[in-house]
Simulated scan of single mutants.
Amino acid sequence: MLDIRPMTIGDLALGRRLVAQAGWNQLEADWRRQMELQPDGGFVAELDGVGVGTVTTCRFGPVAWIAMMLVDEAYRGRGIGRALMVRALESLNANGVRSVRLDATPLGRPLYESLGFVAEATFDRYRGVLPPAAEQSGEPMARKADPLDLDAAIALDREVTGTDRGRLIRSLADEHPDSLRVAGEPGRVAGFLLSRPGRSARQIGPCLGDERAGPALLADARSRYAGEAVILDVPAANAPAAAQVRSWGLRAERELLRMGRGPRVAEDPRRIWAGSGPEKG
């Protein structure tokens, strides 16, 4: 018998196992962050008492993200993914969410389309080892953030993504304060970048900014993380960002399709130089 129940901290082992099986990059810290941001947002599928699937939701006012849609490969094709998605959407509807978003892999796209999601944008996932940075002339534009910058970064994120992700940005900055880099004067941020470790590579992003700040922040990340394996999710609409990461020798390994259900969110992909990851865009 299939049962969809709320996710608890006791399900971390299941989450880790399914991530490893799928070859995804998330760590236990990513699951814990999700539970802290939205304690009632996760669901587990159990078949005859055995955990076989997960899905998470995170609400940002009228906009929500669905992520971590994972089904044990031994149990696929039995409607488990659909049952998880239906439960997630029921929860979001009950909480007044109007726009639901997710980043789909090719495997999940048919299911999401059958539930009313439509394609909105394409992101390419780039992976590789960062080469040493070329020596810079002049004063670098990117710098370490100071206490005045976080609120400004959150305001910029809201402007670019059309979503109030302040809780997410604060959580990432609290967990990895040294990764928060900004461009611009204190309190007047033209761009910002965060990164975090992953199972197989460092996730660089979110990186948001204008046409000067974005490239400078990416170049700064290349210098800081030279020699590390990295992942960047770059919108296809931002050709300069894609050209920059390709010039480092990184290669696009797969496509992520950003999909939405309900009123379209006004997002500006030309100012997104790297997404925060498929969990929350």
Rank of each mutant, 00 (worst) to 15 (best):
M1P: 13
P6G: 00
M7Q: 14
G10I: 03
A13T: 11
A13G: 12
G15P: 05
R16A: 13
R17I: 08
V19H: 06
A20V: 06
Q21E: 11
G23V: 02
W24T: 11
W24D: 03
W31R: 02
R32F: 03
R32V: 15
E36Q: 11
P39I: 12
D40M: 09
G42M: 08
F43G: 01
V44S: 06
V44Y: 07
V44K: 03
A45I: 07
L47H: 05
D48N: 09
G49D: 06
V50G: 01
V50R: 13
C58I: 01
F60H: 14
V63T: 02
A64N: 06
W65R: 00
V71E: 02
E73P: 02
E73R: 14
A74H: 06
Y75S: 00
Y75P: 03
R78N: 06
G81N: 01
M85D: 05
V86A: 09
A88R: 04
A88Q: 00
E90I: 07
E90H: 01
S91I: 10
L92V: 01
L102Q: 04
D103W: 02
A104V: 10
A104L: 03
A104S: 15
T105C: 08
G108N: 07
P110C: 04
L111E: 01
L111M: 09
Y112A: 04
L115K: 10
F117K: 01
D124N: 10
G128D: 14
G128R: 10
G128Y: 05
V129S: 05
P132Q: 07
A134S: 13
Q136S: 12
A142I: 06
A142D: 05
R143M: 08
R143Q: 13
A145N: 10
L148R: 11
D149K: 00
D149F: 05
D151F: 03
D151Q: 06
A153F: 00
I154L: 02
R158N: 07
T163Q: 11
D164E: 13
D164C: 11
D164T: 10
G166S: 10
G166I: 09
R167K: 15
R167T: 11
R170G: 06
S171L: 05
D174Y: 07
L180V: 04
G184H: 07
R188Q: 15
R188W: 02
V189Y: 00
F192V: 04
L193E: 03
L194Q: 05
S195A: 12
R196D: 04
R199H: 09
S200H: 13
Q203W: 15
Q203M: 14
Q203N: 13
I204L: 15
L208V: 11
D210M: 08
G214Y: 04
G214P: 04
A216Y: 06
A219N: 15
A221F: 08
A221W: 11
R222G: 06
S223D: 13
R224M: 10
E228P: 07
I231E: 12
L232G: 07
P235I: 08
P235W: 03
P240D: 03
A241V: 07
Q244L: 15
R246H: 03
G249T: 09
R251P: 09
R251E: 15
R254H: 11
L257M: 04
L257C: 05
G260R: 02
R261A: 05
R264G: 08
E267W: 06
D268N: 12
R270A: 11
R270Y: 05
W273Y: 04
G275K: 10
G275I: 00
G275S: 14
S276M: 14
S276H: 05
G277E: 02
E279I: 12
K280R: 15
K280L: 12
